[in-house]
Design a protein around this nucleic acid. Structure first.
Lengths: 114, 114
DNA sequence: GTAAAGTATGACAGCGCTGTTAGAGTCAAT
DNA sequence: ATTGACTCTAACAGCGCTGTCATACTTTAC
């Protein structure tokens, strides 16, 4: 499928789809005339990228961990090479979650007590 | 205390302390010569700001919720004026937490299974 | 009182993300 | 075959955050 269709199906702007490619997160084939040719699987892929990005992960970080998602159910996994980096990422995520939960409970308290 | 001391005590760069002020998160008094005069309480305040910001909250959002932190243990709270905005903020925080937790469990799975 | 360190403001710049615009080429439908 | 919709690349711009630099003033220390 071409980029417009992927954009509609995934709700990600064309601009950002091209940006994801530029960031090394997508590598669509090209038609002879240069049009990007995406596949069905790319729909979920770009949705996932967007979710992770919305959650505060940098595209660079996502670039690290995304290959594992793609291959996590296959026997031959390229993830071993990424494991060290993943641990760091995990720690950072944990910190972020904890801080947000603290913010959350503060807010809950405020909303209930005032 | 002056800005340099606050920077050392809080581990926040002078640049960012001034930026926090510009964003309406700090309002230090000024000496006759124009130097910012911070107080002891500002140390924890700027640390908190930095934490929340690191967790993905915008300075604008922090500006909304910070007054409540400051007054949450006093009987007369200015928070009533903020409650409406806080609900929105809370929803956004919840979304971020959920996405981060999804990322987290994905990563945990990957680290354990590969 | 002079020098060094600190501070003030303002500007520029960079990164990450996102939108928009412009100019050129391609595809599809009439 | 022409028109309208789509795509391409490239560039500019904006926001949020952060660092750095320049220039001027203030404070501190000798």
């Amino acid at each position: 499928m071409k980029i417009g269709e992927l954009s509609k199906l995934s709700q990600i702007s064309i601009r950002m789809l091209r940006y994801y490619e530029e960031a090394g997160l997508l590598a669509p084939k090209r038609s002879v005339s240069g049009y990007r040719q995406f596949e069905i699987a790319d729909i979920e892929r770009v949705k996932l990228i967007h979710k992770l990005n919305s959650a505060g992960l940098t595209l660079k970080v996502i670039r690290k961990i995304l290959p594992c998602w793609q291959h996590q159910n296959k026997k031959f996994s390229p993830c071993k090479e990424f494991r060290l980096g993943l641990s760091d990422t995990l720690l950072k995520i944990d910190e972020q979650i904890e801080l947000l939960q603290q913010s959350r409970s503060h807010l809950i308290t405020l909303l209930n007590e005032n």
